[in-house]
Amino acid sequence: MSALTFDQVSVRYGAHTVLHEVSLEVGAGQTVGLVGESGCGKSTLARAAVGLAPLTSGTILLDGRPVPTRGRRPVQMVFQDPYSSLDPRMTVGESIAEALPGRPGRAARRQEIARLLALVHLDPSKAGDLPGQLSGGQRQRVALARALAARPRVILADEITSALDVSVQGAVLNLIRDMRRDLGLSMLFISHNLAVVRYVADHVAVLHAGRIVEHGPTARVLGDPRHDYTRHLLASAHPLKEHT
């Protein structure tokens, strides 16, 4: 288990400041929900953690040390659109194998791919399929398996259920909860939907116009919000049915 800390992080593109001195901690083994409307800077914060958005100021630390930007990446990101994040010309097995550390032999590689697919509740026989042969929910599970292949200490999940229908959303969210329980992963779970975050997160941070306006335990933030913007998000949230 590892802790990911954003300390006074700012990101600016030209004259436009996307993030304003954001401080947030994803505690070891915790799932922290980051919520806010489109354009508030949620994805930029996650992209900064994996080196895809340059910091204007501030630091991002993993267990008190700068997040490595070379070699093995202990922080892995899963993107919103699983189809665009997977190479359509590569089989499921090839995509997962590409993320495996080291150079395992053929048998070990096949065994590890099968293990990762089973971990995300997919039949290992899917290793030979192309992304276009899978449903949206299955592709998102493959994207999760690919992220897990790198043996990360922290997962950044960026709107990973927003493109899925409600029944598939529930199955993927149950998978997220299972992963957290079984693997002890720390996770930043990004969403505009507070109902989804309520289901998976221990703590919630509310991002508005590039600033954290509220942060605390999920039950407190969603049960007794102290900021008008949080109340606005709650008023527009839709209930999520639990699926098993």
Rank of each mutant, 00 (worst) to 15 (best):
S2N: 11
F6G: 03
D7S: 15
V9C: 07
R12P: 03
Y13M: 12
G14S: 11
G14M: 09
G14W: 06
L24A: 14
L24N: 12
L24G: 03
E25H: 09
G27C: 03
G27P: 11
Q30I: 06
G33T: 04
G36K: 01
G39T: 14
K42P: 05
T44G: 11
T44E: 05
A49G: 07
A49C: 14
G51I: 02
L52Y: 11
A53D: 09
A53R: 09
L55P: 07
L62M: 08
D63R: 04
G64C: 09
R65S: 15
R65K: 14
V67H: 04
V67K: 04
V67M: 08
P68W: 08
P68I: 12
P74W: 15
Q76D: 13
M77E: 01
V78P: 01
F79C: 01
Q80I: 09
Q80W: 08
D81P: 00
D81Y: 04
P82V: 13
S85P: 01
P88Y: 11
R89G: 10
M90D: 01
G93R: 02
A99H: 13
L100K: 06
P101Y: 06
R103A: 13
R106F: 05
A108W: 09
A108S: 09
R109W: 08
R110I: 05
R110M: 10
E112I: 08
A114K: 06
R115D: 10
A118P: 07
A118M: 10
A118G: 14
L119R: 15
L122S: 07
L122N: 00
D123P: 01
P124L: 02
S125G: 11
A127I: 02
L130W: 10
P131D: 03
L134V: 06
L134M: 12
S135M: 10
G136M: 08
R139I: 05
R141Y: 03
A143G: 06
L144G: 09
L144M: 12
A145I: 06
R146V: 10
A147T: 01
A150M: 13
P152Q: 07
R153A: 13
I155W: 00
L156G: 03
I160V: 14
I160A: 04
D165V: 12
Q169L: 01
Q169R: 05
G170R: 04
A171W: 01
V172H: 00
L173Q: 03
L175D: 03
R177L: 13
R177T: 09
R177M: 07
M179F: 07
S186H: 15
S186P: 07
S186W: 10
S186G: 14
M187G: 08
I190W: 02
H192Q: 12
V197S: 05
R198I: 07
R198N: 15
V200Q: 01
V200A: 02
D202Q: 09
V204W: 01
V204M: 04
A205Y: 02
V206Y: 01
H208G: 03
V213C: 11
V213R: 04
E214R: 03
P217F: 13
P217A: 13
P217D: 09
V221A: 03
L222M: 12
D224H: 15
D228H: 10
Y229W: 04
Y229V: 06
T230D: 02
T230P: 03
A235I: 15
S236N: 04
A237Q: 12
H238Y: 13
P239F: 06
P239W: 09
E242L: 10
